[in-house]
């Protein structure tokens, strides 16, 4: 008879949360992404992107849109375009581990509550760091 394995609630909650947000993120990334590829039109038109995709990212944005990129406004302010909407799916995937850690926090013992808490702070730092550095002029 197959023996049962008891998986810790902290692990189960983390896994379930990750599963749900990954599905949503994948759909949000791929569906608009395919529309963008098929239509060829977006915040950065494919013809223009192809012309400059051999340049470093900073030069690419100067050449295609005449802008400098610092932070997330480049796609958040242009959500009517399919390429930027596709980036929102990527953002959701990139924030999924953070959401999963927060969901698992209440199920963790006191030592892991501290460790997961530190992870949440580090993750938040990773997200807001580009904004803070831009504001302070770095």
């Amino acid at each position: 008879m197959k023996e049962e394995v008891v998986v810790e609630p902290m692990n189960v909650t983390f896994a379930r949360t990750m599963e749900i947000f990954t599905y949503i993120g994948l759909v949000l990334m791929i569906a608009p992404g395919i529309i963008y590829l098929v239509s060829g039109a977006g915040f950065v038109g494919v013809e223009s992107a192809v012309e400059h995709w051999n340049e470093p990212s900073s030069t690419f944005w100067k050449e295609t849109k005449g802008i400098e990129i610092h932070g997330y406004s480049w796609f958040l302010n242009n959500l009517s375009y399919m390429d930027c909407l596709s980036i929102v799916g990527i953002v959701l995937l990139a924030v999924t581990p953070l959401i999963s850690i927060i969901a698992a926090l209440p199920k963790a013992d006191s030592r892991y509550k501290v460790i997961l808490g530190v992870l949440v702070l580090e993750f938040l730092f990773a997200i807001v760091r580009p904004l803070l550095m831009h504001v302070t002029g770095h």
């Binding site: 990334m29 791929i30 992404g33 395919i34 963008y36 590829l37 977006g42 950065v44 494919v46 992107a49 192809v50 995709w53 990212s57 900073s58 690419f60 944005w61 990129i69 610092h70 932070g71 997330y72 480049w74 390429d83 596709s86 980036i87 990527i90 953002v91 995937l93 990139a94 990773a126 997200i127 760091r129 580009p130 904004l131």
Partner: peptide
């Protein structure tokens, strides 16, 4: 990935395929 997103180094044209 947040570092690359904040620098505009994520292009759907390359990521999606």
């Amino acid at each position: 990935a947040w570092v690359y997103l904040a620098n505009g180094a994520v292009l759907p044209l390359i990521v999606i395929p």
